[in-house]
Design a protein around this nucleic acid. Structure first.
Length: 527
RNA sequence: CGGGGUGUAGCGCAGUCUGGCUAGCGUAUCUGCUUUGGGAGCAGGAGGUCGGAGGUUCGAAUCCUCUCACCCCGACCA
């Protein structure tokens, strides 16, 4: 409250647009950024969110980019029902175990007037429906009907849908009762093909996350305890948020023949023998928008990477001086049209002229909080000079630049890509600064223990540490520190942690047990 | 489900312990004037079943009982 007062009267310098700041109270800062950017809000339905136009615009761009990649990799979209007969979910033992507790169940149909004038269900269903928490079982049942021969394979299907998971605690975008996602489901003749597909889609997610969301990630395989229920192998991408916690950004599962056997997905091979097929599934959700916020936003609000920003450039006409309005508006309109004719990252440059009857400062701050990549102030001065006056959201709000109009129009794609690149580098530096090799138990515990136990400060990060491979060690660390193995990382040419591991001469010994280790795994606190 | 907390104007809150005039403040909103290239100023207006039900009392936002919702910490977890 005292902060509010500081902001008031007299002082033109406002500390930050978002209060509290990240260091003051990170979870609250997150909520405030989502609110200030007008991305989404809680709804009357418990744990469910309303995604508002600016937030949904981001999701639409995520969809467009990913959908194109899915098509390019041979997939087709289809749609399956929201409701799954309860018996379907019961088919795969581990799957039931994993999801049963978080399912919403529909037990009645139709409503009629009750004695008190309210509505009461007319009758129970003979078999309850589950609202899909994921669609493996119902899609598997359909696939079993569609597939007869090896000639029907591979079957490569994707679905854009909503799913429901009845979580105890929810947070906008990060964990909501209902969320939007895509789920890919594929069927293959051989284990090799299915494994290849699983990793191909992990690559697609990696490209998308790094290239479009400007979020660096560590990727790798999940340990047994973190595996998708029913999967043989689960792979994930793991970006680091600004509080140094990991957030699982997407997963790709090799399901082996588990679901094929449960759903009887069989085909006749070239020799005429009946075989169970091999399946995969993979998905990303609106959670990525949460990752976007926590990767790039600062104490003034959201910062959007241009490739997924609903609008690239905001033009604010300064038309308050009498007699200048017409020429300023004309200039803005023609400038907007010139910019819209440009293509950036495969789509037209999106320009919005903000003519709201608001004071300049207030208007500009609203776009800072929404994270628009470029914001222009165009007044008579600029019209006369044939220039544009703009700021970039990846730089300090006070840093504005003049540029000849023609030059800006010519370079707009370059400037947007420069912003995109700057965001990635910043996030990547942050992740690498907070990633280290840890080889002793004491250092590991100190790394993940906040100095202030009452109100933990931002601490920890990614620890690359040897591990004996025992689940009991994982469980103990989780109990002690709430730290888990995020993945057994890939160390390939595109891995950001590769450089760290190059000079690694430490013995491959698990610091928790003294036993031999097959390699370093990624430990972190997580969302 | 366990522990703690909060429900008063769109949002944020005071008032509750110690019952008492017409229920207040900030902000947002609306109107007017003056302003305007970094979050405006003055004036006026509108906006309330004090979460809900029952009880005590001459009188309840305030006390009692029940209930509902939400938040935080656990537990749970894409």
């Amino acid at each position: 409250m005292s902060k509010e007062k500081e902001k008031e009267k007299g002082s033109k310098a406002v500390a930050t647009a978002i209060s509290p700041t990240r260091t003051e109270d990170y979870p609250e800062w997150y909520q405030q950024v989502v609110k200030a950017a007008d991305l989404a809000e809680l709804s009357p339905a418990r744990g469910c969110m309303v995604i508002k136009p600016w937030g949904y615009g981001i999701w639409e761009n995520i969809q467009k980019i990913l959908d194109k990649r899915f098509k390019e990799t041979g997939h087709q979209n289809a749609y399956f029902p929201l409701f799954i007969p309860k018996s379907f979910l019961e088919k795969e033992a581990e799957h039931v175990e994993g999801f049963a507790k978080e399912c919403a169940v529909v037990t009645h149909h139709r409503l009629e007037k009750g004695p008190d004038g309210g509505l009461v269900p007319a009758g129970p269903l003979s078999e309850p429906y589950i609202v899909r928490p994921t669609s493996e079982t119902i899609i598997g049942a359909m696939f079993a009907k569609w597939i007869r021969s090896y000639r029907d394979l591979p079957l490569l299907i994707n679905q854009w849908a909503n799913v429901v998971r009845w979580e105890m605690r929810t947070r906008l975008f990060l964990r909501t009762t209902e969320f939007l996602w895509q789920e890919g489901h594929t069927v293959h003749a051989t284990a090799e093909d299915a494994r290849e597909e699983t990793l191909r889609m992990l690559d697609v997610y990696t490209d998308f996350c790094e290239g479009s969301l400007a979020i660096p990630i560590v990727r790798g395989e999940k340990t047994e305890s973190e595996r998708f229920p029913g999967a043989v192998n689960t792979y994930s991408i793991e970006p680091m948020m600004q509080d140094r916690k990991a957030l699982q950004g997407g997963t790709s599962h090799f399901l082996g023949q588990n679901f094929a056997k449960a759903s009887e997905i069989k085909y006749l091979d070239q020799a005429g023998a009946e075989q169970f097929a091999w399946t995969t599934s993979w998905g990303v959700s609106t959670r990525l928008i949460g990752a976007l916020v926590m990767s790039h936003a600062d104490d003034n609000g959201l910062i959007l990477p241009p490739r997924v920003a609903p609008t690239h450039i905001i033009i604010m006409p300064m038309v308050h001086k009498v007699g200048t309005e017409e020429k300023v508006m004309e200039y803005c309109n023609s400038l907007a049209n010139e910019l819209r004719a440009k293509i950036y990252a495969g789509r037209e440059v999106e320009v919005h002229i903000d003519r709201r009857d608001l004071r300049g400062g207030e208007k500009m701050w609203s776009w800072i909080k929404k994270g628009a990549p470029i914001c222009m102030e165009i007044g008579p001065r600029d019209v006369d000079a044939g220039a544009v006056f703009f700021y970039r959201r990846d730089q300090e709000p006070g840093k504005k630049a003049n540029m000849p109009r023609a030059e800006f129009v010519a370079k707009v794609g370059e400037i947007l890509e420069d912003i995109q690149g700057a965001l990635f580098r910043r996030a990547n530096n942050f992740m690498m600064e907070n990633t280290r090799l840890i080889d002793c138990k004491e250092e590991f515990y100190a790394f993940f223990t906040p100095k202030n136990a009452e109100k933990p400060e931002i601490h920890g990060g990614y620890a690359l540490t040897h591990w004996s491979g025992e689940s009991s060690v994982e469980a103990k660390i989780k109990e002690d520190l709430n730290v888990t193995i995020r993945c057994i990382p890939f160390v390939d040419e595109r891995s950001p942690i590769r450089a760290l591991l190059e000079g690694d001469r430490a013995p491959a010994v698990c610091p928790f047990t003294g036993k031999a280790s097959r390699g370093r795994v990624l430990f972190a606190k997580a969302y």
